[in-house]
Design a protein around this nucleic acid. Sequence first.
DNA 1: AAAATAAATTAGGTGAGCCTAATAAACGAT
DNA 2: ATCGTTTATTAGGCTCACCTAATTTATTTT
Lengths: 218, 218
Amino acid sequence: MLTRSEEDHLKAVFALLQDGESAFTKDIAARLSTKASSVTDMLKKLAEKGFLKHEPYYGAKLTAKGTAHALTLVRKHRLWETFLVERLSFGWDEVHEVAEQLEHISSPKLVDRLDDYLGNPRFDPHGDPIPDRQGKLRVRKTKRLDTCTTGDTVRIAAVSETTDGLLRLLDSKGLRIGSVLTVQELHAFDGSMDVKPKSGAAFSLSKDVSHHLQVESN
Amino acid sequence: MLTRSEEDHLKAVFALLQDGESAFTKDIAARLSTKASSVTDMLKKLAEKGFLKHEPYYGAKLTAKGTAHALTLVRKHRLWETFLVERLSFGWDEVHEVAEQLEHISSPKLVDRLDDYLGNPRFDPHGDPIPDRQGKLRVRKTKRLDTCTTGDTVRIAAVSETTDGLLRLLDSKGLRIGSVLTVQELHAFDGSMDVKPKSGAAFSLSKDVSHHLQVESN
DNA sequence: AAAATAAATTAGGTGAGCCTAATAAACGAT
DNA sequence: ATCGTTTATTAGGCTCACCTAATTTATTTT
């Protein structure tokens, strides 16, 4: 059994590895708002328990066991978010903290029943894929909005950074998962782009925003 | 903010006081499977924080603040049990441990939304009353089955000790909340009684069992 | 390649929440 | 009323998950 803190560290490692390279001590610490030395302690413990490999000074890599456990956490987190939004009418921008607590509830039966109750959803309210019972992640072929070019018409599939600020900004523009929009113009000097939603007036999105929107071709 | 352990101690005190007299150190320790000395520590802390009054050697009494907080815990526990049984098809005898975890999730919004989602139920699957948003407990006038006499026809309203053993025993006899039965004969020598369900053959219930069944007149 | 810088680890300390053992208080029986 | 038993508290110690400060390793700059 893992403690809540151990699970948080495991999830942080998993999340960092998802985004590309190694998970470094300082990045894990930043993500969890703790200090590097605390992270080192934890990495040693998790390595001893067989959830990851810790290469001192070169970060951590997950073992199969660690990946499997991290996926159950992601599964729980996203299922609870789905429950909160779809059944309890929470806004998609206010579910994160609560799901952060709920994901640590330990009851395999509960997770699977919840999954069935929600109709075995494939994606959560942010458009992120929900691992299935076996821990398989179904991925979609998406690209970042900031890699699109003029004329592309795409559907928003996911938001990769779920900060309150970004989520509220999107909400204020009327954007959500599934929104369809066309790229109208690219501004090279600051990376911003003008986009036009299917219905409504065009507006501008900064690079900061478009970088975090995963889209699929329409 | 209270820690999980503090909340567990608070709830134990509340539960003991419900059943009558003072909450003594040893009883709290027994309920939480810890040692008396640990409980003393915790009682001091909770007293300092204003949730209870600790009279050394004479147990603990809750303050208004303590009672209010305990009631929010009871509310959460019973709402989650209701959710698990009514929405996720859990058996009423397998929800306790999970609800024990869920009750510590801290989000007032979540509790109230869940309450609405479930249709503001007044009683949980064990027949115990669910405190409302203001912490008010609606009580029913019930008596224990072992205080009934021959000829009484009553409906099972609640089970006061929710051990797995007792719940399964009831299940095996076909008894549940709402079951109606008639007292047929009392056996003074061991306190057992013969009861006949509305449909089906009569059987015997030990004092141990009838003592924990809260019933209301039919 | 030596020096400066950045990052990670180690060493050592703290508070929370538990424990055991020792002591003190309350209670029940004679 | 005193003795013996039960129960509670205190004293002191342990582990866990954090911290700061010191040290070591890796990387970048010159």
